[in-house]
């Protein structure tokens, strides 16, 4: 039991990072109704911008974090203009495939600029450990959890308490109706994309600072984890993204402890498969899916 609880604690810490990744995915999917496979690689590019700042200017933690977020936002905006703005809205597959192509482009670009396999990244509170009775957590994990929680609260405030958030929700629900109400949907979409990239950049920074090293494969990893966590919770659902991230983290941590590293990812995929089979809308997306169907049948 103690093992299980300790695993859950570790799982929640990494799950917080998954949740941030899933939030970015869900925000983009919400406003566009299209998948951005290049989301992870844009974060990876941001993390390399952070590393560059660290290596070239010996930048402090805060500057590295800012460089990471800015890098992710710039590359994210590039993806948005190319794969989503320039491609017709009803061509979801074209957007998705082109986002895959851009993924390859970003990975190649980063590999050209950074030819080594791994690069160092500055750590937060490296190596120190916080104890809670019999349980313990790395201080960097605790920092990750706290920053992620703040970011989620900030995002909720932005989406539910501001004019911009109202516009984002309007565009997510019905882009045509949003245009009827005078919302500049193109601008709102670009800004929402930028917010998602900033969240992703933050997640990337926290993860890289925890690992203290990065590789270009980080893009693949981030897309994978974020996508699975989002699908678990329900595409387009903010609480779903948080739940999906935490669930994925805890299930992975327990699978790793009890079954070993080879089985860990297998368990994660089986979990996703089970959820999608029984609740195709995801854990939190199902209710929204049903409500929307009911509403449509009434019109």
């Amino acid at each position: 039991m103690a093992d299980f609880l300790q695993n859950c604690l570790d799982g929640i810490a990494i799950g917080a990072a998954y949740a941030l990744l899933a939030l970015g995915f869900t925000l983009i999917f919400g406003v566009l109704r299209r998948l951005n496979l290049s989301y992870g690689p844009s974060i990876m590019a941001g993390v390399f911008a952070g590393t560059a700042a660290y290596m070239a200017f010996n930048a402090g933690l805060a500057e590295v974090a800012i460089a990471t977020v800015i890098g992710a936002v710039v590359v994210g905006a590039y993806i948005e203009r190319l794969c989503f703005w320039a491609i017709r809205k009803d061509m979801a597959v074209a957007s998705m495939v082109s986002s895959f192509v851009i993924w390859m482009q970003i990975e190649e670009g980063v590999t050209l600029l950074f030819p080594d396999r791994t690069y160092a990244f500055p750590g937060i509170l490296a190596d120190s450990v916080v104890e809670f009775g019999p349980f313990f957590l790395r201080a960097s994990s605790l920092a990750m959890l706290a920053i992620a929680a703040l970011a989620v609260l900030g995002l909720l405030a932005l989406i539910y308490r501001t004019h911009f958030g109202l516009a984002v929700r309007a565009v997510s629900e019905n882009p045509e109706a949003a245009r009827v109400a005078g919302v500049n949907t193109g601008l709102v979409t670009l800004l929402a994309f930028a917010c998602a990239s900033a969240l992703g950049g933050l997640a990337g920074f926290l993860i890289a600072a925890g690992d203290q090293q990065i590789t270009p494969l980080f893009g693949l990893w981030a897309t994978f984890k974020g996508l699975i966590a989002m699908m678990l919770g329900g595409m387009g659902s903010i609480p779903g993204a948080v739940l999906g991230g935490l669930l994925l983290g805890t299930v992975e941590a327990n699978a790793l402890w009890y079954l070993g590293v080879e089985t860990r990812d297998l368990i994660a995929y089986m979990l996703l498969f089970a959820v999608l089979t029984f609740r195709p809308g995801g854990l939190m997306g199902q209710a929204a899916l049903m409500a929307r169907r009911a509403a449509e049948s009434r019109v």
């Binding site: 004019h163 109202l166 516009a167 929700r169 309007a170 629900e173 019905n174 045509e176 109706a177 949003a178 009827v180 109400a181 005078g182 919302v183 929204a288 409500a291 929307r292 509403a295 449509e296 019109v299």
Partner: peptide, 21 residues
């Protein structure tokens, strides 16, 4: 618009505020 096109998952109040965007 034809077929109303309201925002189904937003409250009635938010629908109206969105109108004044």
């Amino acid at each position: 618009p034809e077929n109303r096109l309201v925002f189904p998952d937003m409250t009635v109040r938010d629908n109206l505020v969105a109108g004044a965007y």
